[in-house]
Amino acid sequence: MTQDNGSNLLKATNEDTSGPFFPIYFQDESLEDLTVLGPGIVGAPSGQHIILCGRVLDRHGNLANGVLMEFWQANAKGIYNSPDNLGHPDLDPWFNGYGRLRSASGEYKFCTIMPGASDNRAPNITITLFSDGISRIVTQVFFEGHKANETDPVLKSLGTDDQARLIARHGGHTDGGAEIYLLDIVMAGANETPFFDDFES
C-alpha cells in the first residue's frame, strides 16, 4: 500500500465517476439555499442575497444531465468557516459556506450570499462538479463588476478568454432583492471552462 518513489505516503484511493445514479435521496434542501438555515428557524447570514445560476454543458453544447455540484465560499466579510478561522470575530455563525445540489437536467440554481473578498482574493465561489463519465473537477467562479477581479491571482494566472469563462454575468435581480448572476460551465470542447488541479497544485 505504500508508494514507491521513496516516499512514505499512502497511495491515494482512485477517484471514480459518481455515475448517473447519485441518490437524490441524499439531497438536503438546506444545502441548496444558504440564505436560510432551515424550516422555522429565525436567523440568517448577513450579506447580499445572490442567485448563481446557469447550465452545465458537454462537448457538444448539450445540457449535462445528472450533475452533482458543490459550492464553497467565504462569508460576507471574506472569512471562511475553516478550522484555521475558529473563533475569528468575523465568522458568521449563521453561515458555513458549503452548498450542494443535484441537477437532473444540467441547469442549476444556487441561492447564497455574495462572498466577501478574502486576503488578496476577489470574491469567488469554488465549484466542485461530479457527474457520470468524469471524476471530480473543480473551478472557481467570480462576479462581473468587481474591481478586485483585476488583481485576483487565480484570474491573473489565466489568459483573457479563460478569465471571461470564469466571471459570472450580472443578470438583474429578483423581486425579493437577490442579485442574479449567470454562468454556464462547459465541461469540454471549444469554449471549455478552465478547471484546476488541486492534487498537484
Binding site: D58, R59, H60, N62, A64, A74, Y80, S82, D84, S118, D119, N120, R121, N124, S131, D132, G133, I134, I137, D152, P153, V154, K156, S157, L158, M187, A188, G189, E192, T193, P194, F195, F196, D197, D198, E200, S201
Partner: peptide, 18 residues
C-alpha cells in the same frame, strides 16, 4: 462528452487556501 480536453491548471499557491 464530458471530460475536459485541456490540461487542468495549477492553482497559484497564494490562492490555495481560499
Amino acid at each position: 462528452q464530458r471530460t475536459p480536453r485541456k490540461p487542468l491548471r495549477l492553482i497559484p499557491s497564494v490562492a490555495r487556501e481560499s
